[in-house]
Amino acid sequence: MNFISRYRRSKFFGPALLAAALFILGTTYSVASATTFKAVTPASDKTTLVAEGKELFARGCSSCHGLNAEGGSIAPSLLGVGAASVDFQVGTGRMPMADMSVQASRKTPVYDEAQTAALAAYVASLAPGPASIKSADLAWERSGDTAQGGELFRTNCAMCHNFAGQGGALSQGKYAPSVMGAEPGQIYEAMITGPQSMPVFSDKIITPAEKLSIIKWIKSAEAEPSLGGASLGRTGPVTEGLLSWTLGIGGLIGVAVWLASKAR
């Protein structure tokens, strides 16, 4: 232990010890927490899935949507909305709502994947509706056409979601959210179910192939670096005007004051 006694009075000893301790603690924790992996219950049996969903529904959703999803004074009926709608609303965290404001906003999901699937199966079992879409099942990367998707997006979506998918305001505090960061499956589900203020874009209006193109364009816009410097939020001229009135003229007035100051 000569090594320690030789260096323990060094001024680097304390910080080094702290770093070592943190490293050991961190490693131990990450190893330990990695082992708390929860196995998803294999949902092979459809009836048990529906039963499980019914149970979850009764506990978490029925107070607003009714015991049999028939709807109530504050929430719509869920008969016929399909698994896609449930998967979208619950999977993006919109349902259950955090508060009774004008619109449910995206947040960390309350239910995990298996529970969401159970809820979806239960609601789908009540009346037929569109099935949920898995991102992995969509071949948007291979079969979509970015340019055509952009054209479709500008024709059908940009009026609410903005030219770059950044979202926009609707009346009475409702809004079209940003589509950046949304999963392909969720985008697809949103188009076929029309959540909240959004209209339904059926396969007759926008064909499945075109939907994939839209997803491909959204993903390309998401990945596109800001080509002209800082993007200023991709919201159009408002932020540009703000910058010219603050940094722009502010900086130039600063220079003018400096130039006109008397040498002391």
Partner: peptide, 16 residues
């Protein structure tokens, strides 16, 4: 995107 009279975008603004 290019202009066509059929399209419009949210946040259409003029310069300040």
């Amino acid at each position: 995107g290019p202009y066509t009279p059929a399209q419009i975008t949210a946040g259409s603004q003029p310069d300040w």
